[in-house]
């Protein structure tokens, strides 16, 4: 599932500088005709602070195909979180077009965006963002609460995910009673409970020690191998190395996109 022709490159080589601001082809010529999970076209996000304008995103174009594992890097303030918010339908682009699972986000109402978030997206945050008064099981199930045709197997699914994350004996605990790593596992389980099209993680290991971070990253590798589509914002290059694609941001623009390996397909590709 290649996206850009220019950076089909060595997996082990360091990040390769490319011409800043070079226009990235929107991969119009996709042979197999598969639908992208997420597609951005000249997306801009401008914050107005009085008379000043901050271009948090300044013409971003790229596609994430199903099964790809993207890692987004860049200096602080380069627009990574803004990009993730747009991808997550929490924020709308000021200009440009963004389609998630084939639907143009700009045309959707607030309710439809919420529906999209509860069905197609999974969020994992740096600070876990669990709801303090809910226990582990309830926290995992929150995205299901907001689906209008909530179905019964939701709880079984949540239990299974919790078990997979090694939280089977913690279901009744409140987030405050868990370690950071455990909380992040709950968050991951929560992001998976609705079987999302796209999993978004903003510095998901930023608050964890390297040992725990490695465990969490292994989990992401595992999810990727299962064919999940992931966009992962990180500061650390060793984290980025695990991804299939590395996207570098600078001043709201895409600085460089590097493809490190082929994406896993849902059918279960090689590792």
């Amino acid at each position: 599932m290649t996206l850009t022709s220019e950076t089909q490159s060595d997996t082990h080589g360091g990040p390769r500088p490319s011409a800043p601001g070079s226009p990235l082809p929107a991969a119009a010529n996709r042979a197999d005709g598969e639908r992208p999970a997420a597609e951005l076209e000249a997306v801009e996000r401008i914050y107005r602070m009085g008379s000043e304008e901050v271009h948090a995103l300044d013409g971003v174009t790229f596609q994430v195909m199903p099964g790809e594992y993207w890692s987004v890097m860049g200096a602080s303030g380069s627009g990574k979180s803004t990009l993730l918010n747009v991808l997550g339908c929490l924020d709308r682009p000021t200009a440009g077009r963004y389609s998630l699972a084939g639907r143009d986000v700009n045309t959707l109402s607030d309710d439809e965006l919420s529906e999209l978030r509860s069905r197609k997206l999974g969020f994992i945050f740096q600070s876990y963002n669990l709801i303090p008064q809910l226990d582990v099981l309830e926290n995992i199930m929150v995205p299901l609460f907001y689906q209008d045709d909530e179905t019964e197997p939701g709880e079984e699914r949540a239990r299974a995910l919790a078990a997979r994350m090694g939280l089977a004996d913690r279901l009744g605990h409140k987030p405050a009673e868990l370690s950071g790593g455990q909380q992040q596992r709950v968050a991951i389980a929560r992001s998976l409970v609705n079987d999302p099209e796209l999993i978004l993680a903003d510095e998901a290991t930023g608050n964890l020690d390297s040992q725990t971070a490695a465990e969490i990253l292994d989990l992401f590798d595992e999810l990727s191998r299962e064919g999940k589509t992931i966009v992962f914002v990180t500061h650390e290059s060793h984290v980025a190395e695990r991804a299939s694609h590395v996207l570098r941001m600078r001043d709201g623009r895409i600085d460089d996109v590097r493809i490190q390996r082929a994406a896993h397909t849902r059918a279960g590709g090689s590792s």
């Binding site: 607030d110 309710d111 069905r119 969020f123 963002n129 929150v142 995205p143 907001y146």
Partner: peptide, 9 residues
């Protein structure tokens, strides 16, 4: 958080 996870207004 709830909004991010799909809560409508």
């Amino acid at each position: 958080i709830r909004r991010a996870l799909g809560a409508k207004r």
